[in-house]
């Protein structure tokens, strides 16, 4: 095995082009588990810790935030919690403080596990993933098109994830996750929600309840049409319930060690109903964000 230590993005891309089997490692929270358990031994590890720009974020001219793939969760919470509240809420539920000090959204994307905590808020907020290869340059992939199967993504073998782009929240965002204990929980299932008041639209993201993270389109359209955006009248309980049902309908869960398909559907409907209720309450109060 080789241990590659590029010190710039260009070097990293070149290394990946030379060795498409090289596994990128930043926080190590997924890659090292695979190595420790000896599941497989890649031809090389591509350490991204020395590519400084990956651990930075910036405001772009299009008004969006561009967040480097290797910015750890702890910094997303601390530095971007106000502007990306949904992602920050999800980040707070990732593993432990030690994991959040190392783990990154880029790693979550690279692993593309349906249980990854950052996926639902990225989906709900219409994030785009910036990937690049030495041969073909940069591609922008909408989050909704990034996940292609269980632990599979649209990333090509010679590409690396550079950043994700996302608009700062212009309305309330929520994230909810259910697990069997009160910390250190892999999601039994999770749900992210973002209100986009300027286009009177709702974004959603479902985690751990289908082969890939996915949006609940029918639920989004239904609620967007029912909500009184302009008049700001309170949420009709029946609308919230129906929203929950439709969100669950978008899922395709399985039974596994963490939970049954039936429970996941139930839990999803509860989480969707609750997150919409909380978010709408925040919207009525004029706040952009609030915590669960």
């Amino acid at each position: 095995m080789e241990f590659l230590r590029p010190t710039s993005w260009g070097e990293a891309l070149a290394a990946k082009a030379d060795a498409p089997g090289a596994v990128p490692i930043a926080g190590g929270t997924d890659v090292m588990v695979e190595l420790n358990f000896d599941k497989h031994r890649p031809e090389a590890l591509l350490d991204l810790n020395r590519v400084g720009e990956l651990a930075t974020w910036s405001e772009e001219e299009d008004g969006r935030l561009r967040v480097g793939a290797a910015v750890p969760y702890a910094r997303i919470i601390g530095e971007l919690g106000g502007r990306l509240p949904g992602l920050a809420m999800a980040a707070r539920t990732v593993g432990s403080p030690q994991i959040r000090n190392r783990g990154t959204v880029g790693g979550n994307l690279g692993a593309a596990s349906p249980a990854g905590d950052s996926h639902p808020p990225l989906l709900a907020a219409d994030a785009e993933i910036e990937v690049e290869s030495a041969a073909r340059g940069t591609r922008m992939i909408p989050a909704g098109e990034f996940y292609t199967g269980v632990k599979r993504s649209a990333l090509a073998p010679d590409e690396l994830i550079r950043a994700f782009h996302v608009r700062p929240a212009e309305g309330p965002q929520q994230f909810s996750k259910i697990g069997t204990r009160n910390a250190m929980v892999i999601a039994v299932c999770s749900f992210g929600l973002a209100l986009h008041p300027s286009d009177q639209r709702i974004g959603t993201g479902i985690g751990s309840a289908a082969p890939t993270p996915r949006r609940a389109f029918e639920a989004e359209e239904y609620a967007a049409g029912e909500l009184d955006w302009a008049g700001r009248s309170p949420l009709d309980e029946r609308v919230a319930r129906r929203f929950g049902e439709l969100a669950a309908r978008a899922a395709a869960p399985i039974d596994d060690v963490r939970g049954t398909a039936e429970y996941r559907l139930h839990a999803l409907s509860v989480m969707a109903r609750r997150t919409l209720t909380w978010a709408w309450k925040d919207y009525l109060n004029g706040g952009a964000t609030a915590c669960a």
């Binding site: 069997t180 204990r181 009160n182 910390a183 892999i186």
Partner: peptide
């Protein structure tokens, strides 16, 4: 569920 990620012993929050 043969590891500590899947066999859930109580954490302090429990």
């Amino acid at each position: 569920n043969h590891d500590l990620a899947q066999y859930h012993v109580p954490v302090n929050a429990d």
